[in-house]
Write a protein that binds this DNA or RNA. Structure first.
Lengths: 186, 186
DNA sequence: AATTCATTTCGATAATTATCGAATTAGATA
DNA sequence: TATCTAATTCGATAATTATCGAAATGAATT
C-alpha cells in the first residue's frame, strides 16, 4: 500500500511527464502530437504515458490510426481527496517498527544478567533505557521508596539517579512530598 | 517554476522518504532515531532529510546533542492542495509551444511556393494542414464560392476537397444551401 | 581545553531510469 | 491481401540518485 504512493509520486516526479499532464489537462493528444510538442521521440513519450497510465492518471483510446490519451480527472480527484485526509501519510509508516530504536539502545547498555553497564549520559538514550526500566513496575500499583529501590537495584546501583530520572521524564509519579510512587500509563 | 514542482514530487517519490514523513507526522525524531527505525545509516537519513527540507516539508531544530526534525504541516497541506489542482497542472505546460506539431506537419507538406504537395490522408495531419490553410481567410469577412476557390488554388488544385474538409472540420461555415462562406473564429 | 557524540559532507558504488534507434506489433486503408 | 502509419517494445547508453564508509564539523559535557 506504500508502493502505490511511491509509484504515484514517481509518475509525477519528472519535468516532461508534468508537461504531458498539463497538456492533457487542456485536451486529449496522440502520442505523435505530444512528441512534437515536447520535442521528444515517440518512443520516449510512449514510455512516459505508460508510467502515467500505470497509476491511473491517464488512459488511452484508439481512434483510427491514433492512440489518443486523456487525463483521468476522477482518478486525480480521488488522489487529492486521499492526500488531504492525511491518513495515508501516517499509514506510510505503519509497517515501521517503532520500538527498533529503543531495543537497539537497550541492547547496547544491557549486560547478560539484565543490569545496565552504565546510565546513559545522552538524553535520547537515557529516555530509551528508562522506557525499558519502567516496564519492571506494574501499572496501577503503588510502591514505597524502599520497594522502588529494590527493583531498580536490578538495573543499577545508583538507584537514586534512576528514580529521579524516571520521575523527571514523567514515566513515574510521586504522591505529594514523601508518599508512594506509581508508574504512569504511557 | 516548474522545477519547483518536480523537486517536490521527487522529494516524495521514495519509499523511505515517505516513511520518514509518516513517522514525523506522528512526532518529531532525531536523525539517529530515524536511522534505527528504518534500518539505514545516519548518513543516508541525513541525505533524505536534506531533500525533504529543500522543499520545505520538514525543518530541523538543534536540541542539545541532537538535530530534531519535525514535519511542516502547513507546507504539506498547502502543497498538496495546490499541486494536484487542475489549474496548476495546466500551468505546468504553460511554456510548451502548442503549435509545434502543426508547424512540423505543415512543413512536411508545404512546397517552397506555399502550395501543398498532397492533401494529407491521416486525420490528425489533415487537421493541422487545414488549420494552416484557413489562416488565408480573414475572420469576419464573407466569401463567395468562387472567391474561396481562388484562394484555395494557392494550396492545391483539388479546391473542392479542401473546401469540403474545411467545412467538415468546422473551420469554415456556409450560409444555408448555396450562400457565402466565412471563417469560423477559433 | 579536551573529549565525546550526533550530524553532515565527501567520494565511491550500485541501482534506477530517461532517452533514443531499431525492430516489432496492431490498425486502417487501398 | 498488401501496404502504410502510429504506437509499442527491446536493447543500449547516459544521467540521476540511494546508500554507505570515512572524514570533517560542531555542539556540549567534563
Amino acid at each position: 500500500m506504500n508502493e502505490e504512493w511511491v509509484s504515484f509520486y514517481k509518475a509525477l516526479a519528472d519535468a516532461n511527464r508534468l508537461k504531458i499532464v498539463g497538456l492533457l489537462a487542456q485536451k486529449p493528444y496522440s502520442v505523435e502530437q505530444l512528441a512534437a510538442l515536447l520535442d521528444l521521440k515517440p518512443a520516449t513519450i510512449s514510455h512516459h504515458l505508460a508510467r502515467l497510465a500505470e497509476v491511473g492518471l491517464v488512459s488511452a483510446k484508439t481512434e483510427s490510426y491514433y492512440n489518443v490519451y486523456r487525463l483521468e480527472e476522477k482518478a486525480l480527484e480521488e488522489r487529492t481527496r486521499r492526500l488531504l485526509s492525511r491518513e495515508d501519510f501516517q499509514s506510510a509508516a505503519a509497517d515501521v517498527d517503532v520500538d527498533a530504536y529503543d531495543r537497539k539502545v537497550v541492547a547496547d547498555y544491557k549486560r547478560r544478567d539484565g543490569s545496565l553497564k552504565t546510565i546513559p549520559a545522552q538524553r535520547k538514550k537515557l529516555e530509551a533505557v528508562l522506557r525499558h526500566v519502567v516496564k519492571a513496575f506494574e501499572p496501577g500499583k503503588r510502591y514505597s521508596e524502599k520497594q522502588v529501590n529494590k527493583i531498580l537495584e536490578r538495573f543499577h546501583e545508583d538507584t537514586a539517579s534512576l528514580r529521579r530520572e524516571l520521575v523527571g521524564y514523567g514515566l513515574m509519579k510521586r504522591e505529594g512530598g514523601g508518599g508512594d510512587y506509581w508508574r504512569v500509563e504511557s
